[in-house]
């Protein structure tokens, strides 16, 4: 049988998907074991036990100074910034994306400025944001919003333009106004596509959040990682990175499920 015709069944799919993860963990264990055999105080590749201890310390014991469980208060602080920022940029992108994609007037007005602005490296704006908005949450939210909104707007506008013109004409022959077309034809068709776009922006959103927290913050997952970096505390950093990855993965999964549940027509329409 040709290689391209071999399709793994359920069991095999699971085994094959688990293989790279197992290989990564195995490689780490071997490397860590070799270094620790040479020097039991090695900090670079801590053992799983050391990481578990650090995790217990961070997540399950209150901090003696503040009384907080640091990992959870860090998570709460990071997630609230991230979700606030993503909600703002999603809303802006939906409004401006539909305007730019649907109305030629709005397209010629905002299209070029969005195209130019989306080329500004957001991190280069961070100092400006800190100067203007101070070192608090405002600057961090603003950075994530600036970093993700412009791309989302362009993506939305392109997807609005992908709507077959036949559908827009059909709606007009049914007597629809511009507003009614935006509300009943374009918006509902954009929502599931918006979920796709937001899923792709979760990664960049985390990037901007951690960068901002690294520079000026007093809590947050990124803040903690950069704080303990001074003590080479890999046993804290690695669990934190895994935790961040897991959070991002769960957000992605949640959006995918939402898309499937809330827009049952979309899977069929996408393949048609």
């Amino acid at each position: 049988m040709r290689l391209l015709n071999i399709k793994p069944d359920r069991t095999w799919s699971f085994a094959l998907a688990a293989l790279p993860f197992a290989a990564l963990i195995g490689a780490y264990l071997i490397g860590s074991g070799m270094r620790l055999a040479e020097n039991p105080n090695d900090k670079l590749l801590p053992s799983f036990n050391a990481m578990l201890d650090a995790f217990r310390h961070m997540a399950l014991t209150p901090d003696p100074r503040s009384g907080n469980y640091l990992m959870w208060s860090d998570t709460l602080s990071s997630l609230s910034l991230l979700l606030t920022a993503l909600a703002i940029s999603t809303f802006i992108a939906l409004v401006f994306g539909i305007l730019i994609g649907l109305l030629p007037i709005a397209g010629t007005t905002f299209g070029p400025v969005v195209a130019v602005a989306s080329m500004v490296p957001p991190l280069a704006l961070l100092p400006i944001l800190f100067i203007v908005l101070g070192l608090g949450d405002g600057a961090k939210i603003a950075l994530i919003v600036i970093g993700t909104t412009l791309k989302l707007i362009r993506d939305m506008a392109l997807r609005v333009k992908d709507i077959p013109s036949e559908l827009l004409i059909k709606a007009q022959t049914l007597g629809a106004s511009t507003w009614q077309i935006a509300l009943r034809v374009v918006l509902p068709q954009m929502l599931p596509r918006l979920i796709d776009s937001v899923r792709l922006e979760i990664g960049p959103a985390w990037l901007f959040l951690i960068a901002a927290e690294a520079i000026a913050a007093d809590s947050g997952l990124g803040y903690r990682i950069f704080l303990v970096r001074r003590y080479l505390a890999m046993d804290v950093i690695i669990p934190y990175v895994i935790w961040i990855t897991l959070l991002a993965f769960l957000m992605d999964l949640g959006l995918r499920l939402l898309q499937r549940k809330a827009f049952p027509w979309f899977a069929g329409a996408r393949t048609a």
């Binding site: 077959p164 559908l167 709606a171 034809v185 979309f266 069929g268």
Partner: peptide, 10 residues
Amino acid sequence: FQRYSVFPHL
């Protein structure tokens, strides 16, 4: 039209 005559989300 030949194609895209009905709204896929309704």
